[in-house]
Amino acid sequence: MGGGPAVWRSGGVGWSGGSAGLRWWGGRVSPVGYGLPLAFRAVGGRACAGARSNACPVGAAVPARSTGGLCPDCARLDRAHSVAADTFADDPRPYRVYLAWFGAGTVKVGITGEHRGDARLREQGAVAFCWLGRGPLMAARRTEEVLRQALGVPDRVSYERKRALRVGLPDAGARAAEIEELYGRALGVGGWGDTLEALPCTAYDHGELFGLGALPPLDGTVTELVEGGVVTGRVLAAAGPDLHLRDPGGRHLVLDGRLLGGWGLERCGPDDAWSVPVGGAPATGGQEGLF
């Protein structure tokens, strides 16, 4: 995981070609394999990754618990050029509206650029999903809001809830049935079909891709990396930015890959003791939407 005197700085966890990998500044990717060991030490402090493929002009430090991995100035620049900021209303490219399923009774509606395919769904850890419609950006944005209100589903699901729901998932058939039921309800909502092309219902499933067969109860989540802190264990699964690990003590822990961004990481041995802070496991209660 690196070599020579230079520190390899992490770009977090990403998805490419249908598999998860550890990204590095400069573009390299180290594949993540389920059942294989993962062992590294955080070194060299945590630095801002910069925005829009540009280096941070001041090389700012980033707080260890930040999931953004950017200093405030770079975060503002990055946000200003995002689809969510609605700053490119005249974008001529087509967009798609989707339903993303994260666990029983927990579905969100969202949009993504058609040119990105289903990358956005992998990045946010959607266990299953279906497309609803396609069309111009602002029509897709309006449809997203109309359906969110009409169906009583949220526009976001917290990562804490997603992690809790991955343990004890219903089977793929039940996941597809829930997606198909909500798709049918969405088609019954008037208005949006006038501005978007409705797409046929096909339920796609990421359960096998993510390695979510039968995860054991979750024992905790990493809260931050620290200078010299060690993460070591075997990879059980990966979903969105999250790596599910079995540590040497037998605990099932989640490492949010967004916490890695900007840290220098160096290889350590499997016998090195785990030494980064771990918080409690998320609770499964507390429905976030009406659905």
Rank of each mutant, 00 (worst) to 15 (best):
G279Q: 09
L215C: 07
G184F: 09
S275T: 15
G173C: 03
T195C: 00
L260T: 02
G264P: 08
D256P: 02
D247V: 14
V189T: 11
P217A: 13
Y204N: 04
D194A: 15
L255D: 05
D242C: 11
W192T: 07
R246N: 01
R251I: 01
H206Q: 13
G207A: 15
V278N: 08
D271W: 10
L245A: 08
G211H: 09
T223W: 08
E180F: 00
D205P: 02
G193L: 09
A172H: 11
D194N: 12
V226L: 13
V254R: 07
L259D: 05
V235F: 07
D247I: 12
L212E: 09
G213F: 10
V278C: 08
W192G: 06
G213E: 15
A237G: 09
L182A: 04
C268P: 07
D256V: 02
Y204S: 13
P277Q: 09
C268W: 04
G264W: 05
V231Y: 06
E197Q: 14
R267E: 15
P270D: 13
Y183D: 03
V189P: 08
G233E: 02
L255A: 02
G279V: 08
A177V: 01
A198T: 13
L218F: 12
H244M: 09
E180Q: 14
A273E: 15
L187G: 12
D242E: 13
G279F: 10
F210P: 03
E180P: 00
T223C: 07
D271S: 14
G173A: 14
L245I: 12
G228S: 09
P270M: 07
D205Y: 10
G264F: 07
R251F: 01
L253F: 04
E227A: 14
W263C: 05
A172S: 15
G228K: 11
G279E: 12
R251P: 01
G257R: 06
D271F: 00
G173L: 13
L218Q: 12
D219E: 12
E208N: 00
D194Q: 14
A174L: 13
G229E: 10
G173E: 14
L245E: 06
T223E: 14
A174E: 15
P270F: 00
G261F: 02
T202C: 02
L236D: 08
L236G: 05
A237P: 04
A172W: 09
E227F: 11
D205L: 04
G173K: 09
H252E: 03
D272C: 14
E180K: 09
D271R: 15
L245R: 06
G257Q: 02
L255T: 07
V235I: 13
L260D: 01
E181N: 01
V254D: 04
V278Y: 11
A186N: 05
G262H: 10
R175C: 10
C268H: 08
L265V: 08
H206G: 01
L196I: 07
V189R: 10
V222T: 08
L260K: 07
L187V: 12
P217T: 11
E181R: 15
A214D: 15
C201P: 12
E180C: 09
G261H: 06
G240W: 05
W192H: 14
E208S: 13
G191E: 11
L236W: 05
L265K: 08
A203G: 07
P200V: 06
